[in-house]
């Protein structure tokens, strides 16, 4: 299994010199089973370059198949979709997966992304055959020889984490999520964050505990855990209701689940390359102090990892 990062940024793309090394494109990761079609997780602006790369192969001839797993439909996770070239080539087959919403079909959400007056090319004008698949929390299914699982996360409007197993390797993509301690994020808009240490109702605490247990179980022993670590501790204290974690939160989950590698991901837009280097070094130091057996890396655009039988 190969894992390649095409976009590692959260919230909004950030072009410029200060992001040259880690990259300024928003979330997109390609999982490539050996000899298989690509499985793409999230369609931030990084998917534009992935699309250009794919067009050099079977997708350029209209003979490609891709599965796209969407963590949630916030802009930074779907804004590259209309710029994914294989969608405009007849014959290509695309399967888009995301969590089922109570009152909206997934296809309608994607249709409204590109309707007039927001974008000139409507969903109905795509040349590829696009199928939408709605997932319930905890769903398990196969994409060819890859086993896929999902579990819900703590994020406004709810995001999904995915686990993929193939070629004797496993990876979990966990973005976006807040930690599971201070605030429950679902469909209600939260204007003011709770104060640090404020007690939350038992029903919320129970729900958060269940969500956390589901994630830890899904991450058990994986080769690679990709985790939303957008915030520093100070940033989290100011904005716990924005639905993002810190590297310390990721370390706790990685430790408990016994993962082999932890990958920091979904970097804050204003984080310079130097600041991200410092976060990585500090996180490695914390892990070392704690005696953690796993490696910590930070995702950057173009990073390619080989896992399992291929390694």
């Amino acid at each position: 299994m190969k894992v390649k990062f095409w976009g590692v940024r959260g919230s909004i793309p950030v072009p410029g010199k200060s992001t040259n090394r880690y990259g300024g494109n928003t979330s997109c990761v390609e999982i490539r089973p050996r000899g298989g079609w690509p499985i793409v997780i999230d369609a931030g602006t990084g998917i534009r370059r992935l699309g250009k790369y794919l067009m050099d192969g079977k997708f350029g001839e209209g003979h490609g198949t891709a599965h796209i797993l969407i963590s949630h439909t916030h802009w930074d996770h779907i804004q590259g979709m209309p710029f994914f070239s294989p969608l405009y080539r007849r014959g290509n087959k695309m399967h888009v997966f995301a969590r089922q919403q109570a009152d909206t079909h997934l296809q309608a959400v994607f249709a409204s992304q590109t309707e007039d007056p927001y974008f000139p090319v409507p969903l109905t004008a795509l040349e590829a055959d696009v199928q939408f698949h709605e997932l319930v929390e905890g769903a398990r299914f196969m994409i060819d020889k890859t086993a896929v699982q999902c579990t819900r996360l703590n994020h406004p409007w709810v995001a999904m984490a995915y686990r993929l197993d193939c070629d004797g390797a496993s990876v979990v993509y966990c973005s976006d999520t807040a930690p599971f301690t201070d605030i429950l994020l679902e469909h209600e808009f939260i204007a003011k964050p709770p104060l640090p240490g404020e007690l939350i109702p038992a029903s919320m605490a129970d729900k958060l505990a269940a969500m956390r247990a589901g994630l830890v179980a899904m991450c058990q022993g994986v080769d690679l855990l990709i985790y939303d670590t957008q915030f520093t501790v100070d940033e989290y204290r100011q904005r716990p209701h924005w639905g993002h974690s810190t590297p310390d939160d990721a370390l706790i989950i990685a430790r408990e689940a016994g993962v082999k590698h932890l990958c920091l991901y979904h970097h804050a837009p204003m984080r310079t390359d130097e600041a991200q280097d410092a976060i990585l070094m500090a996180t490695r130091w914390t892990a070392k102090q704690a005696g953690d057996p796993f490696d910590v890396i930070a995702a950057y655009e173009g990073l390619e990892l080989t896992l399992g039988d291929d390694a």
């Binding site: 909004i12 793309p13 072009p15 410029g16 010199k17 040259n20 300024g24 494109n25 534009r48 710029f83």
Partner: peptide, 18 residues
């Protein structure tokens, strides 16, 4: 100064990708 979609990367550093 960019059209359609932000274009991050070293190749757009001078004119900008926003």
């Amino acid at each position: 100064v960019r059209g359609s979609i932000p274009a991050p990367g070293p190749e757009t550093n001078r004119y900008g990708g926003n």
